[in-house]
Simulated scan of single mutants.
Amino acid sequence: MKDITVVIGNYNYARFLREAIDSALANVPASAGSGERVRVLVIDDGSTDDSRAIIESYGDRVTPVFKENQGQSSVYNLGLSLVQTEYVLFLDSDDILYPEAIGEVLRAFESGDYAKVQFRLDVIGEDGMRTGVRVPNSTPPSDCAALLRRGWLYPSPPASGNAYRVSALRSVFPIPMSLHHRKAADFFAIYGIALTGAICALDNALGGYRVHRKAEDKRGHSVGHAGLSLGNCEDVSEVERSFPWRWQTLRHMIRTRLGEDLPEHFIDFSFEKNRLCVRLYDAPTTERWHWLIFESHRYFTSLVRNPYWSLGKKLGVLGLTLLCLIPNRQANNFALRYISNPAARFAAHGSAAARG
């Protein structure tokens, strides 16, 4: 019997929660003879909206857990301690799974000795409509561990696009709890799991990643700035602040639980492009030139040496980056929006795809 638990973590997302639960339940086999068992565990992290009533309305179709608010990391830690299945998928309560998702994930696990199966997600707007963008944009090799040991973070979808072998994830978890570690639990799962076994990356989209909050960066509030980010939890400035201590925490987890030492510094284009955008968006031409000439070494290293990208993609991003040297703020901001978030091309037309 192949079995998996879909753990839905929720905090004050009543407006999306029912759609998330329904999408998980749509993956539960109609008959016991299907050879698959799918459980749905909903952990509410101290919501103050109507989430509890929504969860309770499902009766015994889901297993509910209500707890005080401690952040996403506490949901991952608790969920992993409660699951009794071989595999687990953590679904954010503002995202959805497609009806065929779990079946394809379980078939992938059965096809090899994988610690994780990941799949692409369609980016959807607040109304659930697909934007035409999928994440991630690149496919990692099955052995991501070798590159991670050199500091390279591999391409992965956000939380909802990853399913894990429970025993492998437990060898790395739990996440140390502190005020710093309340969010972004998927970072530790996604990269920690790579050191426990091979990863299977499915190219087809099996779910939807909902983008519904305008991002803010340190320069202000605008549609353009919203287009700089594709995440709901953090803007581009917060990413720059948070990633270094996340990496150090992951290093600690790997050292103490797996006995390995990761490099002191990580290399990741997603992180470096955030630094680029924070520095150069709406910046004067002289400031852009100065940063690109004197302070951009890590950015260009993460671009030129990127082991996951084709030469054509590298040249395309390099060309967009060089647009920032042109003394035209409109061209500069367009290039930065496109580098940071390809979905931002919809922002110019007022699409929800640029909500971040």
Rank of each mutant, 00 (worst) to 15 (best):
L147V: 10
F188K: 08
V83A: 03
V123D: 10
I193G: 01
G71I: 10
S34V: 12
L25N: 09
T285G: 10
T286H: 02
A185H: 07
K183D: 10
Y191V: 03
L322W: 08
F173L: 14
D3R: 01
L147W: 04
H221V: 14
I55K: 13
C277Q: 03
D49Y: 04
L322I: 08
P141T: 01
L228G: 01
D268V: 00
G220K: 02
H221R: 15
F187D: 02
V28I: 01
A331D: 02
H212P: 04
K218L: 15
S57H: 12
P155Y: 07
R219F: 06
S310Q: 05
N162Q: 15
E216C: 05
F187Y: 11
C144R: 12
S111R: 09
F173N: 01
G71D: 06
F66D: 12
R275H: 08
L195G: 11
A26Q: 08
P263S: 01
G259Y: 07
D94A: 13
F346I: 12
N333G: 05
A198W: 05
G79Y: 11
A53Q: 10
A145Y: 02
R345N: 11
D261R: 13
F90W: 04
I190C: 07
I54G: 03
D113C: 11
K218N: 12
N332H: 13
H181P: 01
P157N: 07
I175H: 15
T48L: 09
R337H: 04
D3P: 04
D143H: 07
E56D: 03
I102N: 00
A198L: 13
G220P: 03
T63D: 15
R210N: 15
L318N: 06
D203W: 02
F300E: 00
S51E: 03
S138L: 09
T285R: 02
S93I: 00
T196G: 12
D49T: 05
E19H: 09
N332G: 15
D60N: 14
L121N: 09
V65T: 09
